[in-house]
Design a protein around this nucleic acid. Sequence first.
DNA 1: AAAGACACCTGTCCGC
DNA 2: TGCGGACAGGTGTCTT
Length: 270
Amino acid sequence: MPELPEVETTVRTIKPVLSGLKLKQVLVRNPNLRWKIPTIIKKLKNVSIESITRRAKYILIETKEGVIIIHLGMSGRLSILNKDIEPEKHDHVDFIFNKNITLRYTDPRRFGSIHLVTNNLLQHPLLRDLGPEPLSKDFNAEYLYQALHKRKTMIKQAIMNQKIVVGVGNIYAVEALFEAKISPFRRSSSLNLEECQSLVKAIRSILNQAIKQGGTTLKDFLSPEGKIGYFSRKLLVYGRENKPCVTCDSKILVDRNQQRSTYYCKQCQH
DNA sequence: AAAGACACCTGTCCGC
DNA sequence: TGCGGACAGGTGTCTT
């Protein structure tokens, strides 16, 4: 599920619950995620949670003994449990806290990963080359124009490139390009400053809306099962193959030649 | 340096 | 009902 809004929603959900708690034990049932979970993670015992933040699509849980980095991959999910619930097939890790609270990591495809970083967090290979946060002021039309003007790749690939801007995955790339009325197949270098401006605006607006809606599902959180609810933003173009464009009524097309499906309106996007 | 193909893994859905 | 194939929200690595 996770693009930036889902990760942000997850962080906002778990943060108030876990802040100040003590991590008693890390229970690893299956260490074989995208990378093997380091065994030293089990050494985290009786350490307080100092902060929980997000960088790109990474969740950072800071303790005095190191920072736990969690990535949710394609199918990862975190849930908060406040009573014992029998783990299921894909419940690979439990972070067990005091006050009978457990943070459970579930990931059927195991494309996610969990790391423990004990120094120089920002120099960690996963974090050091990341581009600006899309919701920060560092991500603006001038920056994007500079980042794109020598690139030959298609614009959709460029905005999904985490070195250019973080947090944008396939769904939101497709939605943002639709909102900005820019064809996903344009060469990055062909965008002028004005188009960069509308793309920046569109990316911001889409992500903000999604986060806002994610927030509305927080009420589901700490339900008896303790599952975190993910939002379902209204998608205007993604997944709408052959359906009428919400703007001009012509058929939404899909291109599957690339690695990821690209939905677009031939009429509206140029 | 940058672009493109491929890899990792499991579940679900659709057509036959 | 079963089987094969396509597809799914990500991203590091290898090859050109």
